[in-house]
Computed example of a mutant assay.
Amino acid sequence: MKYNLKSPAVILLADGTVFKGQSSVKFDSNRSGEICFNTGMTGYQEIFTDPSYFGQIMVTTNAHIGNYGVNVDESESDGVKISGLVCKNFSFAPSRVNSDSSLEEFLGEADLPVVFDVDTRALVSHIRTHGAMNAIISSDVENLEVLKAELANHPSMKGLELASSVSTKTGYTLGDKLSDFRVAVLDLGVKKNILRRLEARGAYIKVFPYNSTYEELIEWNPKGILLSNGPGDPEPLTSAINLAKKCISNAIPTFGICLGHQVIALSVGIPTLKMHNGHRGINHPVLNLVSGKSEVTSQNHGFTIDKKSTEFNDKVEISHMHLNDHSIAGIKVKGKPCFSVQYHPEAGPGPNDASYLFDEFFVMMSSEHVSV
C-alpha cells in the first residue's frame, strides 16, 4: 500500500458524524474499530505496535506523523496492532539518520489504511465531547448508507475479549537462566518494553499465554508473577481473574499493569467501567499517595476500576491517583505482596518517572512477605 498519492477517504462515526480526508489508494477493504486518540508528541511507532490498541482506529493529535521514520528496535510487538490510522499531516520522507525505513513502508507492509489531511482537532474534540465510539474508515466515499450498515455490525468494545487475539500461542523464555528472579508473565498483550525492563534487572522470564492457569505458572517455580497490559474489556477474562485470586490467596508476589491492574481489581471484587474516552498519552499526571510525589506517566486504557467500590473495599488500599480526573491509578492488596497500576511504568513511549515500580516488584520478590 502506497501513501504518496491522494484520493478521497472518509471516516464515519457510529453517531453518524462524517469526517473527510485523503488516502493514497482505494482501500482493499473498509476497516472498523473503536476510534480513540493519543496526545503523545513522539513515539508513534511504539503506539501503533502496542497490543493494547488492537481493534482500535488511532487518531494522532500531533500534527506531523512519520517525520522520523521507524526503527526495528522500537516496536512494542511483532507488528502493527491498530486497525487504522487517522492523522493531519503524513510525512513520507523520514529525516532521522538511524531510521530503518519510512512509516509509509512500515505501515504499507502491514496493509494498514491511513487517512490523512483530516481536521483532527475537530475529530478529537468530537470524541472528547461524545465519547469513544465505533467508526469505519473507507475510500468508498459515495456509499455512506452501506458503510453505516457495515459499521452497525461491528461489536462494541464493552464486553469484548481481545487478549486472545494478541497473546502468545506458546510459552517462551528470555533473560538470565541462572537468575534468582524467575518471573512468570501472563501475556494479555504484553509490550516488549515490559520484558526489557524485567530483563534489564536480571530476571529470567517465561511468558505464558493469556489463558494459562495458576498451576501452569507455578509449575515453572517463579519468584513472582506479572499480569500484563492488553486490549479489550477485562471482565471476560475469567481465567486470568481466577489466576489473580490464587496468586493473592497464596501470597505470590504479583504485579499488574494496565489490563493486569483491572484483572487484579476484579479478583478482589472491584468492578470495572468503560470510560467516556479513556486516557491515552505520555504526559498524564499521577500522585503517589504513599510517597506524596507526583509522576508524569504514559497511559493507554479505555476501561477503569470503579472508584467508589475501591474506596469501600477493605481488601485494598489506593496507592496512586490520576490528577486530571481523580480516577484510581494504582492499588495495593492489604497484607499480600500484590500491587498494580493503571498506567505504563515501562513507558515506551513516555517518561521514566514510574520505572521505580519494577524495582519495588523485585524487592517484593526478594523479601519474605509478612501479612499485616
Rank of each mutant, 00 (worst) to 15 (best):
L186W: 10
V146M: 13
S164P: 03
K191I: 01
K245P: 00
S249Q: 14
G175S: 07
K223A: 01
P271G: 04
E219I: 04
G171D: 04
L243A: 04
L186I: 03
F255P: 11
K177H: 14
S139T: 03
R128M: 03
I136E: 01
G189M: 08
L195C: 07
K223W: 06
S139K: 15
S239A: 05
P236G: 05
I127D: 09
L217T: 10
I205K: 10
S249P: 06
S139C: 12
I248Q: 01
P236T: 09
D176T: 00
I194A: 07
A240D: 04
T213E: 01
L237Y: 09
E219T: 04
S138C: 03
G269T: 10
D187F: 12
L174H: 07
P155R: 11
I257S: 10
P234M: 03
S228N: 01
E219H: 12
D176Y: 00
G224A: 11
K245N: 00
L151Y: 13
A203L: 09
L151S: 01
A132C: 05
L174C: 00
L162G: 06
V166L: 08
V207C: 07
T129V: 01
I248W: 13
V183H: 05
S239K: 15
A200Q: 15
A184I: 05
I252H: 03
F208N: 13
T168K: 15
L188Q: 02
G131H: 03
H130I: 05
P253G: 00
R196Y: 12
L198G: 14
G159L: 11
L186A: 02
N143T: 08
L186V: 06
V146A: 13
G131I: 07
A149D: 09
A163T: 02
A149W: 12
E150W: 15
I194W: 12
T173H: 01
R201V: 05
E219L: 04
I264V: 11
L186R: 11
N211P: 11
V166Q: 00
I205S: 02
A163C: 12
V166F: 06
L259I: 07
I257G: 07
L198D: 03
S267K: 02
G175N: 10
N134I: 10
N221Q: 09
Y210R: 02
K246Y: 01
N134M: 06
N134C: 06
L266E: 05
H154A: 08
L188Y: 00
T129K: 15
A251Y: 11
I137A: 08
Q262E: 11
T173V: 02
K246A: 08
G189K: 04
G189I: 13
D140S: 13
K169D: 12
K148Y: 12
L237Q: 10
D180E: 09
S139F: 08
A244Y: 06
E142P: 06
L243P: 05
I241V: 02
D176Q: 13
D180C: 00
N250R: 12
V185L: 07
D140V: 04
F255K: 14
V185Y: 14
I248P: 08
N134Q: 10
L144Y: 09
K191R: 04
K206V: 09
E235Q: 00
L217R: 11
T213C: 04
E161W: 11
